[in-house]
């Protein structure tokens, strides 16, 4: 969800752009990170963990935890919290995305 007018900071971004997540076109604001662009569209699961295929998303927003990995324009394991979204960018969720159940999923 985008905050249209921030109570303290007002409006910060002006230009709307289009990017793709798993082939689906989505809107974002120029200047946002890929992680924020996804969360603005209500997408919080960015991929799955390596071993148990559990859902993963933004955790530290600071480039330290690596939970926010996505694939960008074919390059895998990119930190979505530390990369700016660009017009026409192709973002894919991290690794295969099987429908695994389990209590934490």
């Amino acid at each position: 969800m985008q905050i249209k007018k921030h109570p303290i900071l007002g409006e910060k971004f002006t230009e709307e752009i289009t990017f793709y997540f798993n082939e689906k076109p989505l809107k974002a604001m120029k200047g946002q990170t890929v992680a924020a662009a996804l969360m603005r569209n209500g997408i919080r699961k960015f991929g799955v963990s390596r071993k148990l295929f559990k859902a993963r998303g933004l955790y530290c927003a600071n480039g330290r935890c690596t939970s926010c990995y996505v694939t960008i324009n074919g390059l895998d394991h990119v930190l979505s919290c530390s990369t700016l979204v660009e017009d026409g960018m192709n973002v894919h969720s991290n690794e295969s995305d099987p429908d695994v159940g389990g209590i934490y999923n």
Binding site: R44, K45, F46, S49, K54, A55, R56, G57, L58, Y59, C60, A61, N62, S67, C81, I103, Y104, N105
Partner: peptide
């Protein structure tokens, strides 16, 4: 239990 689930983040995040 469940702290790795998307939606769990640091307060700073």
């Amino acid at each position: 239990p469940g702290w790795t689930l998307p939606g769990v983040m640091t307060a700073g995040a």
